[in-house]
Amino acid sequence: MIEGFTSLYIFMLAAFTGYEVISRVPVILHTPLMSGSNFIHGIVLVGAMVALGQADDTLEKTIGFIGVVLAVGNAVGGYFVTERMLEMFKSSKGGAK
């Protein structure tokens, strides 16, 4: 019971954190930020690894394998797309003078 409520508190606080962190974002960063948050939910990788790591039969292993492949795609792809977008902001600073 207490465990459940602790989880509920974590959920609520994390939700407020997410809302607050984003609330003062300039429009120019909307796309990179969406990409960045897309990368962050790539943490699903650790869950997929655990699911595959604890899988016993072929069915579980197959689904778990697909899960890890998808999750790692999310994490790796999300990171490098975001990095490339933000890289452009660096060059703009150089060109601004």
Partner: peptide
Amino acid sequence: TVVGASGTLL
């Protein structure tokens, strides 16, 4: 959850 909340706002 952080992504869920910030994504909803976005």
